[in-house]
């Protein structure tokens, strides 16, 4: 029973981390209709920038400086890259962001090399916050939870309660009208892209020490972020949150419990083949949930696309 609680906390951490990435991505998509393939690369840049800053000024300055740095970089990419490509339609935009992802990975390898960086949890958070019947919950996890929740609350508040938020929301659905009212819509776009990438940067800063900072870190998370926003519904912040948590818990519980396919199949009334090792169905009968935990979100995405194409909270088709 205690293990369930521990797994709930672990899943929450994974989910919230995923949310910080997908929030920016879904925001950018809803505004500009662009699927930013380079989004996870900005997450990687966040981790590397923070590592470099932490070498000289410590972890906290890294947390403070790295995300704005990534955000500015993202804004520049929008202003001098995406905006120029935008007039040619969506496909060139997709190709542009895809190329950008490859470019960022190569640049990171060029500057920092291929080794894993010794980017570590700050000294002050290196203790066990509390234990649930012997299972330690590191303080850093609690810190991660609070940071992501704070960011979600601030984001929600800005979008729904402030003038800027109202302009952004208006620009989402009626850009021409907003422009006619005298607002600088391209500037709004640039700002949203910057904030979105900065969010990815924050995720990188706080995930770098636990998921390790290496050139492959963007690739590992890249596809799952897209799955998240498709499940949540493209363009929906709430959807991104719910989908992230769903994926976090789904993968955590699948890994934590050895659910065997054989048990499920026999409970469905099927009998196992006489000699499982020789049978052509061997792979299906011997698979266990930890082995397929990381592809479960993809199965979920396929089901969502079949039965609810606009996602859990989305307003338009994926």
């Amino acid at each position: 029973m205690e293990l369930v609680l521990v797994n709930l906390i672990d899943g929450l951490v994974t989910g919230l981390l995923l949310f910080m990435l997908s929030a920016g991505l879904t925001l950018i998509f809803s505004m500009m209709g662009v699927l930013n393939f380079a989004h996870a690369s900005f997450y990687m840049l966040g981790a590397y920038f923070a590592y470099q800053i932490s070498v000289y000024m410590g972890f906290w300055m890294g947390l403070l400086i790295a995300p704005p740095l990534v955000g500015v970089l993202g804004a520049l990419v929008e202003r001098y890259g995406l905006r120029k490509v935008h007039q040619y339609g969506h496909v060139p935009e997709l190709i542009f962001t895809f190329g950008l992802a490859l470019l960022i990975e190569e640049v990171v390898q060029f500057v920092w090399g291929r080794d894993t960086m010794p980017y570590d949890i700050p000294e002050i958070l290196r203790f066990t916050a509390f234990s649930i019947s012997g299972y330690a919950i590191p303080a850093y996890k609690i810190f991660m939870i609070f940071t992501s929740v704070a960011i979600f609350v601030v984001l929600l508040w800005v979008l729904t309660r402030t003038r800027v938020g109202m302009i952004i929301q208006a620009a989402l659905s009626h850009p021409q009208t907003v422009e006619a009212l005298g607002h600088n819509v391209p500037l709004v776009f640039m700002g949203v892209f910057g904030v979105g990438t900065a969010l990815a940067g924050v995720a990188g800063v706080i995930a770098g020490p636990v998921l390790s900072t290496f050139p492959g870190m963007a690739v590992v998370l890249g596809s799952i972020v897209f799955v998240t926003i498709v499940i949540g519904g493209l363009g929906s912040l709430w959807g991104a949150l719910v989908a992230s948590l769903l994926i976090g818990w789904l993968t955590t519980f699948a890994k934590a419990y050895n659910i065997r396919a054989a048990d499920i199949l026999t409970s469905l009334g099927l009998t196992p083949p006489a000699n499982v090792e020789e049978s052509i169905w061997r792979d299906i009968w011997t698979v266990t949930s930890p082995q397929i935990a990381d592809i479960l979100p993809y199965i979920l995405m396929v089901l969502i696309l079949v039965f609810r194409p606009h996602g859990l909270f989305g307003k338009r088709d994926a």
């Binding site: 951490v13 799952i224 993968t251 955590t252």
Partner: peptide, 21 residues
């Protein structure tokens, strides 16, 4: 005695919990 997908696991925490448990 367990195998996990190679190069695909983002977070090993659930495995670690099982090992401790």
């Amino acid at each position: 005695n367990e195998l996990h997908p190679i190069g695909k696991v983002k977070d090993f925490t659930p495995y670690a919990r099982k090992i401790v448990a």
